[in-house]
């Protein structure tokens, strides 16, 4: 196994774990903002990790550039979407869940 493949594998594994945990969080967390948290954070990070991992095993320069581009777009777009969702929810009057119970 070549070094770049090793790096790639590690990054991919990391991405997998974060990804899975994020999804699991969205599934299990008790309220919207918590779930948002799980999704928003992990989404960007995990996907970018995986994409970066792939960059290492790509021989072709153009493809590498494209991969980075995808990662870049994700980095811009995913938080924007998360932000917009949050804002909408907040404006809509959705309040965070507290231990005292739902409002």
């Amino acid at each position: 196994m070549h070094w770049n493949e090793v790096v790639c594998t590690v990054l991919l594994a990391l991405g997998c774990v974060i990804n899975f945990s994020g999804s699991y969080g969205v599934l299990k967390f008790p309220d919207f903002y918590a779930r948002l948290h799980a999704a928003g954070k992990t989404d960007s990070l995990a996907q970018v990790l995986i994409l970066l991992g792939l960059v290492f095993v790509t021989p072709d320069v153009l493809t590498k550039i494209k991969l980075m581009l995808v990662a870049f777009i994700l980095l811009i777009v995913a938080p924007t979407a998360t932000f917009a969702i949050t804002k909408a929810a907040h404006l809509d009057g959705l309040r965070p869940w507290t231990r005292g119970g739902r409002q």
Binding site: V26, R35, A39
Partner: peptide, 30 residues
């Protein structure tokens, strides 16, 4: 992960959960 998110999208309970989950599935597909 997508399966889990799909469950969330269906279960809700708010529309924002659905949007969130679908958005997350979207990023996963990328």
């Amino acid at each position: 992960g997508a399966f889990m998110l799909l469950y969330r999208a269906l279960a809700g309970p708010t529309v924002y959960d659905t949007i969130l989950a679908t958005n997350a599935i979207g990023t996963k597909t990328i």
